[in-house]
Amino acid sequence: MTPEIILFLVLALVAIATAMGMLISRNAIYSALFLVLNFTTVAVFYLLLGAPFIAMSQVTVYAGAIMVLFLFVIMLLGAEALPEAEVLPWQKPLAITLAVLLVSEAAYLLITRARPVGDIIPPGAVANDPVTLQQLGMALFQDYLLPFEVTSILLLVAMVGAIVVIRKEKRVH
């Protein structure tokens, strides 16, 4: 048990517990806050994997912008908790059975079929080097320039789309 594995296991426990908390809690605001913690934990995993740029994007975009938007909408609608009304009584047991099946299938495939592809190199000398960040920027703006520009158009379309959906209908005669 190296320190890295212990750190991984503790963080994995936190990630799974916060995901379950998001799923179980009755109040939507608690769910959103659990999800913020989960995203932050995943950001720490990215740091462990030697991807500092993605980790920072995760914290600013996911845990910052997206979850703040969620919290705004939850508080705006005042829809923290829905009234309890069980419409399909068999839905929950069936869903849990299917989810357990999904996990066990994935674990079975990983354990029996996956070839060991190697260990994660510890970040530090190689991965957190500023040179690799520079290389990432070069790759992003040279090899992936077109997808990058398309993404900006996508964000513009999403912005306009959100405004169009929300806008009040004007009656024109």
Binding site: E4, I5, A12, F45, P116, V117, I120
Partner: peptide, 12 residues
């Protein structure tokens, strides 16, 4: 060294 399988199982 964390084996990559741990990450994949966590992701699953």
């Amino acid at each position: 060294m964390v084996p990559i399988n741990y990450y994949i199982i966590l992701s699953a």
